[in-house]
């Protein structure tokens, strides 16, 4: 069973990821992350639905995202491979250029050892396959401070040093 990591807690992941081809009943959708096209076509209804978020592939260009995306409660970014770092920049752009305050969720092929950097870039929840619970905390809190600004701390260390 996949796990959802949020606010440092590890729980079962009960969110479905709807693929592009999947036939679904819009009205029935709940606890689901839907692809961009589906979202755009049914935006009003899905927004109403509440428990529906959107997911985009990690190589999505920020400028290609329509405004309605930023209305979603959750934007999930899917990593095609853990070494593909585009999702890190995309999350920052969503947070910093749009002041998006919803949940940004990492899904796909990222790994636990990236949790700290992901968090710094604005991700707030993570869906992982087999997690070794004992190392998650270690990964989330790898460092207690940082030199450069990011989403979690917009002031670089040089503005905080005494």
């Amino acid at each position: 069973m996949q796990k959802l990591i949020k606010n440092g807690d590890i729980t079962e992941n009960y969110w479905d990821i709807i693929s592009d081809e999947q036939a679904i009943e819009i009205a029935q959708l709940k606890n689901a992350l839907v692809p961009l096209d589906l979202w755009i076509k049914n935006e009003a209804q899905l927004l109403n639905n509440g428990k529906v978020g959107i997911w985009v592939p990690g190589d999505t260009a920020f400028d290609s995202l329509p405004e309605s995306v930023f209305q979603a409660a959750i934007i999930a970014i899917s990593f095609p491979a853990f070494a593909d770092g585009r999702g890190f920049s995309l999350a920052r752009q969503i947070r910093e250029h749009k002041d998006f305050s919803g949940d940004i969720r990492a899904i796909g092929a990222f790994v636990p050892d990236q949790l700290y950097y992901l968090t710094r870039c604005g991700f707030s929840s993570f869906v992982l396959d087999d997690v070794d619970d004992s190392s998650i905390n270690e990964c989330l809190n790898a460092f207690s401070n940082s030199y450069q600004a990011a989403v979690d701390e917009p002031r670089p260390l040089f503005r905080r040093r005494n």
């Binding site: 950097y117 992901l118 710094r120 870039c121 460092f143 940082s146 030199y147 450069q148 670089p156 040089f158």
Partner: peptide, 16 residues
């Protein structure tokens, strides 16, 4: 040195 600190553990650019 300013660049060294900025680039060290830069969270966005570790998987270029």
């Amino acid at each position: 040195e300013i660049i060294r600190q900025w680039s060290t553990f830069h969270p966005e650019f570790a998987f270029l």
